[in-house]
Design a protein around this nucleic acid. Structure first.
Lengths: 107, 107
DNA sequence: TCCATAGTTCCAATATTATCGAACAACTGA
DNA sequence: TCAGTTGTTCGATAATATTGGAACTATGGA
């Protein structure tokens, strides 16, 4: 068993871009994913699709990863996702907190 | 002289949308406009175009207005723009602050 | 009244993005 | 080794955004 699930590329904190982050979160599907991840700490892709096609979700997860918002690691046959909270707080202090606070108000 | 420059539509705070705001700020041109406005408090459209065509800027200002970020009022032949800081802070506490703080770091 | 200024609106061209089916790849368990 | 599960990648299509020229409107000054 040679082939291992190759890990995804996750940008280092220094490469985080404010515009890219804001863009990633301006999509309702992606914003919902991030909000859910804030509640559960960790979740597979399947747990986060709202019945949407896998290929669509795969696209959204990539956008979230590229923005530095989400970290995805392979665990068995599934991919576990989590927020990169500490690094986001380091690079954009207070930003994610303000966005997530907004969500909990709307429920 | 009957015709007066008809005022622009500015959404009330209750109609502000997080996604719309994030989207508006995910564009480099618009983000720059907002960052400049944070410094000068008030500026005409002409002062904020970076040599870009007026029609393009007019589009961007409309997006910013629709998101509730910017207020535009006619003054003489010019349009003066300002951030809707208080209302934004009321609706999205800490959000604009976090975004603007990010900018000043990058200079 | 005429002209210059500041922006808007209209329009078309271009570029980006979202969506999703189909084929593919990695892993687990039988 | 085969089958089932999970998710990615590829490719096409549709929807949406950005850009900027041209015509138009409002305003103020000469």
């Amino acid at each position: 068993m040679i082939p291992t699930m190759r890990p995804f590329k996750h940008p280092p904190v220094n490469d985080f871009s404010l515009e890219r982050l804001l863009y990633a979160l301006s999509d309702p599907v992606r914003l919902e994913v991030v909000q859910r991840l804030a509640e559960v700490e960790e979740a597979s892709c399947g747990e986060l699709d709202g019945g949407r096609p896998k290929s669509s979700m795969s696209h959204h997860f990539r956008v979230l990863r590229d923005a530095g918002l989400v970290c995805t690691k392979g665990v068995g046959t599934t991919h576990m996702n989590s927020l990169r909270r500490a690094e986001l707080e380091e690079r954009f202090p207070g930003l994610l907190t303000a966005i997530l606070a907004q969500h909990s108000l709307q429920k």
